[in-house]
Design a binder for these strands. Structure first.
Lengths: 225, 225
DNA sequence: CCGCATCTTAACGGGGCCCTGACGCCCGTC
DNA sequence: GACGGGCGTCAGGGCCCCGTTAAGATGCGG
């Protein structure tokens, strides 16, 4: 998940970078409109945070420059409270408009909301590895072109891991989300189901390359072994 | 374009109705959470404006009640400025959060932005398998060149599955869309009708190749077995 | 009022899913 | 080298979910 932060204030860029990185986002930055469009074209981000007060061009032109070729979610950050400014930005194609000063928690929630929607639009949240493919939207797993049938519990676990691909997911989190709040220490459940998932998905279940266990901590879904 | 306005303040409802009607929207209204969910289920709106201070239930419960079966855009209107309230609503599935008082122009722009995002792709009006063909536009099913006669309920179920061909459709979603929000646990209805559909459509009803059941999760329409 | 089509409801058998406990393995520590 | 914690593996039993059937409601047109 890459976020492009566009702002001419180095202070804000720095604060954003720290906060977003801490939440697990990749952060790219740009100080003006021209370099923002260039950066977005070079490696398209998954979301854009756009400050309106840029030195070289109008914020609206940046929005239109992006909207010419991409549907990436754009959240506008601005010190201007004027209603007409909000209306203009939103109608030019921005997805949300947040006025400074704002709380980081709120911004993060709005980022999550925007991201959730765009996943729905692109309609193909698919996580692929060399040996199998997880289609989160269709709730289906393929391996060597053939469908693999998972039980509800197996799917539930795999879904959480796949949605956090590359990141460590704690046993507590898995147990809580799958079995409920009362089951946070039954780690043997996890062992049984991880074994079943590996048997169904891993080329060599005894030496897993994608469903990795981090001893004492949790499990991690690894896309490319 | 239908908008459902949920607010317990008759004054606001009235103002909303006038403003939105003037912009060409159809307006439905509800004064509390229960009737909002009921109204949404009866004839699904294209967007929901939701006030958080409802007399009968928490706003969050209304969001979750909707999100259980629909992706309709939800814009929360609230007098509470607290960041934690915003975060909670957005993470529960709201698309936007606007604090009162707000300008009608801004709200209209946010409605347009939400609406713009939620436009999805049209699906093919005809879904074909090796053994039968479903014409969604004409509401007809053919098998071996001969028309198959379906009852209204049978058709309703088949239509939902065919429009989501390849994807898993939860039992909850099927029950909600066919029988209504009060029947979300009568899974035996589904069993009876899936059996009837299979008897009418599958070459070998005992070993279905197109109307697949995923135990504990739902059903899936499979084009090519 | 009757007959037909459709929907609802209940009961039953079977298969698969989830839980559970036991056992062995690999590592660290002592 | 013994020990224990964490993990992987396996198999059996209970139970839930599903498919099937058929009889009782319900609604509609004649």
């Amino acid at each position: 998940m890459r976020i492009l932060v566009v702002d001419d204030d180095a202070q804000i860029i720095r604060a954003m970078r720290i906060n977003l990185r801490a939440r697990g986002y990749d952060v790219a930055t740009a100080f003006d409109g021209a370099s923002a469009l260039q950066a977005a074209a070079k490696s398209p981000p998954d979301l854009v945070l756009l400050d309106l007060g840029l030195p070289d061009m109008e914020g609206g032109d940046v929005i239109e420059g992006l909207r010419g070729w991409t549907q990436v979610p754009i959240i506008v950050l601005s010190a201007r409270h004027s209603a007409s400014e909000k209306v203009r930005s939103l109608d030019q194609g921005a997805d949300d408009y947040v006025t400074k000063p704002f709380g980081m928690d709120e911004l993060l929630a709005r980022i999550r909301a925007a991201q959730r929607r765009s996943v729905h639009v692109e309609e193909a949240p698919v996580v692929a590895t060399d040996s199998f493919t997880v289609d989160l939207g269709a709730k289906r797993v393929e391996r060597d072109g053939r469908e693999v049938r998972l039980t509800p519990t197996e799917w539930h676990i795999l879904e959480i891991l796949a949605r956090n691909a590359g990141r460590l997911v704690s046993q507590r989190r898995l147990l809580h989300d799958v079995w409920g709040p009362a089951y946070q220490s039954e780690t043997n459940y996890l062992r049984v189901y991880m074994a079943q998932l590996r048997r169904k998905l891993e080329p060599d279940p005894a030496h897993p390359r994608h469903l990795i266990t981090e001893a004492g901590m949790g499990y991690r879904f690894e896309k490319s072994g």
